[in-house]
Design a protein around this nucleic acid. Structure first.
Lengths: 177, 177
DNA sequence: GATTAATATGCAACAAATTGCATATGGAGT
DNA sequence: ACTCCATATGCAATTTGTTGCATATTAATC
């Protein structure tokens, strides 16, 4: 759907290789977009065929060659078109909540330990995001201005994870009884 | 992946037709699972072929016939197996955040009005979920006990939407300037 | 009388995402 | 020497999800 546009947004900021994009999806922007490397490379090929992006091969000593992709004017046009268009709200499909909804049908300990496991993951994510926030807050106010929109998405991540963990407290309360 | 198991969970509570399931996905459990009718009917066919569910046709005066699906013993076994197995945390792909991340590239008013639009949708969702909560809280404590797990998923929805709206306040602050 | 909404189900084509496999190099650790 | 990890890219098959189309009835609205 809009992996295409997620990539265009990234490339509009600065050129990236497929591997770079993968790292971004795994690290900084992973809170709001995720994709596997196979999907990224395939999409890059499609975007290149559509002439929305272009690349230059970068020969690296040691490591394999990198293809550095940059957005073209046509790509910028397409991005602008998409940015102006309304997007649908997020479709939520949360398997953990499916499990909890059906918790009557399973041993309670299994569900409880599953929640424990997820709490740990979410706590780690939150810590990571808070560290990113700290880094942002230590920037000069001029630099902060440059990153205000990415920072806003980071805030979404932080508020989202905090809310998740508050919910998890309610959940563990229920499963303790 | 687990539309299959979402359906099994629902059918384990009580028999449903495909149309019933669709309504559930659109209404009560829509906060954590969504599917289109075509996908549901196809999955029901697959589950029936796998003998995880069985159905009885119900002749209705006026309306077309209904196929009422119920879970089989094999289905229950499969559900239990899945419930015991760890599930991956949610993959998040949020197009609105992609837009905001790339907000530098678009007219600020377009992004701002898009956020306004989403606020309205999330506010409506929250109101709907709060109404469901009110209904739950008016039940006798005995009935509440029966619905404690579905209620926990409802709490997730409420806390999630509240957090989203708090974030949106930060967002509108930023876009006002 | 004609249209629209709600109920009820489904096929077919297409798009998107996942899983499995495959290749290649260099550096670090055992 | 051997293995593992990070870097770097990609094809093919399968599964999952979306979009378009199709059908049939009743009740309500215009």
């Amino acid at each position: 759907m809009s992996l295409k546009h997620a990539i265009l947004v990234m490339l509009d900021q600065k050129p990236h290789s497929g591997y770079d994009l993968l790292q971004q999806f795994k690290e900084s922007v992973g809170y709001f977009w995720n994709a596997k490397h196979q999907q990224i490379y395939r999409q890059l090929k499609i975007l290149h065929d559509e002439e929305l992006i272009a690349f230059q091969s970068e020969i690296q000593s040691g490591k394999p060659d990198k293809k550095i992709y940059a957005i073209t004017q046509q790509g910028k046009d397409e991005l602008l078109r998409w940015l102006k268009e309304p997007v649908a709200t997020n479709k939520i499909n949360d398997a953990l909540l499916v499990k909890i909804y059906g918790a009557d049908s399973a041993p309670i300990e299994d569900i409880a330990s599953e929640i424990e496991r997820h709490i740990e993951i979410h706590q780690n994510t939150l810590n990571y995001l808070l560290a990113l926030e700290k880094k942002y807050l230590s920037l000069s106010s001029n630099e902060q201005l440059n990153f205000r929109y990415p920072y806003l998405t980071l805030r979404r991540g932080i508020l989202g994870e905090e809310a998740w963990l508050r919910w998890a407290e309610e959940a563990t309360q229920l499963f303790k009884k």
